[in-house]
């Protein structure tokens, strides 16, 4: 599989790998995918009092493009409001990383992850 330089960069130097306390009231956690399908993404966001995502962390089990998609996502959501973050489309991720058609589902998963994290945060409030 020939990956773009951007995918390789995120894969080799993943940004914002880590875990936050999922019990923390300011933290929203989204876990999407399934081991049987070959990818599971865990995305966590830390939201400030004024509704801005001040930090994001991820862990991903999956192929190179799944790792790159989630790594890119953490960069993109930092500093965004929840509304702005929920507008991130999988097609934006796929385009930025030049994902081949067979890997577009990885970007879909990333979109699902941020939506799930936002929902988890909102459910806690």
């Amino acid at each position: 599989m020939a990956y773009s330089d951007k995918v390789m960069d995120h894969y080799e130097n993943p940004r914002n790998v880590g875990t936050m306390d999922k019990e923390d009231k300011d933290v929203g956690t989204g876990m999407v995918g399934a081991p049987a399908c070959g990818d599971v993404m865990k995305l966590q966001i830390k939201v400030s009092d004024d509704g801005v995502i001040e930090d994001a962390k991820f862990k991903t089990y999956g192929c190179g493009s799944a790792i790159a998609s989630s790594s890119l996502l953490t960069e993109w959501v930092k500093g965004k409001t929840l509304d702005e973050a929920s507008e991130i489309k999988n097609s934006d991720i796929a385009e930025e990383l030049a994902l081949p058609p067979v890997k577009v589902h990885c970007s879909v998963l990333a979109e699902d992850a941020i939506k799930a994290a936002i929902k988890d945060f909102q459910d806690k409030q």
């Binding site: 995918g33 399908c37 599971v40 993404m41 862990k59 998963l109």
Partner: peptide
């Protein structure tokens, strides 16, 4: 494995078969 949420769960002693995954 440092990157893998499944590895974390395994280390926490969570049985992955007991988790309800959203297959896609």
């Amino acid at each position: 494995r440092e990157l893998s949420p499944l590895w974390d769960m395994f280390k926490e002693g969570i049985d992955l078969d007991s988790v309800k995954w959203a297959a896609h």
